[in-house]
Write a protein that binds this DNA or RNA. Sequence first.
DNA 1: ATATATGCAAAGGATTTGCACGGTT
DNA 2: AACCGTGCAAATCCTTTGCATATAT
Lengths: 148, 148
Amino acid sequence: MHGPHKWRHRFRAHVSRWTVPREVILDLLSRTSKHISAKEIYASLYRMYPGIGLTTVYRTLDLLVRMGLINKRTFGDGPSRYEFKSEKKNEHHHHFLCTKCGRIIDYSDFIDEELELVKKTEETLAKKHNFKVLDHNIEFYGLCEKCQ
Amino acid sequence: MHGPHKWRHRFRAHVSRWTVPREVILDLLSRTSKHISAKEIYASLYRMYPGIGLTTVYRTLDLLVRMGLINKRTFGDGPSRYEFKSEKKNEHHHHFLCTKCGRIIDYSDFIDEELELVKKTEETLAKKHNFKVLDHNIEFYGLCEKCQ
DNA sequence: ATATATGCAAAGGATTTGCACGGTT
DNA sequence: AACCGTGCAAATCCTTTGCATATAT
């Protein structure tokens, strides 16, 4: 019972309860543009909600992934990072990672061409190996401005 | 002192010593087509070389990556996986991962188109953000034949 | 009321580090 | 001989699990 919220009904449909930690975590994610780790979420929330444990953060993230509200990603080593799924279709983007400082930059150039490539590949994989492609990921590695 | 080996000189050039664990691990990798984890390497070698510790496997893999002989990859969760870099240029490939059973399938269709896309993106990133692109990775997720 | 969610502590898995010893150059 | 590499154990980091308690429905 924490007021109406635009995601509340989705929890209901998912046979999951609408709790403070879930509301707060989802809210933070929806307002965060970058990829964020479980520990970062925990730390961000700590001042306002010191009662929310890291375990709950992990469990909530898991749930949100299963509900399809967020994406889970792993960049090289380091912890898994989570990102809110944008409702806007054209916010699709890919990543560039600096292998030296770890910086992650989103870019969305050539999305059209990428999608075309993706489509072709999907078709081929489907025919050749009988796979069902559901998602894809394209990333570039190299050195950012500062690290060259 | 373990006989001549085609990689021995590269170790010398790298100011690194040519030891039994290094030779054996590199040999195994060069004969393995799939992505293999540190623990799997350790286990494979255990019967023949029970003296080689897991720590050495990790340190050797690290060295081989720095030498540019192998690639390190992380697929979703799970341990890092390593793959010998093929000398043949046209063995470049990408991956399809089954999100249910974890199976990884290599494919090399549309490599030409992918390379073109990569090239374009590299140029744009270089101009726009002053990045130096060194590598890339494209992967698809979905369900394999058995898991659909 | 009842099933689900939470927090804490402990366990787990992957990888790294400290250190004395052993092997390569 | 000098220095680098190795193995073992212990330490770390991220994530999951067990369990008693709190909370949403």
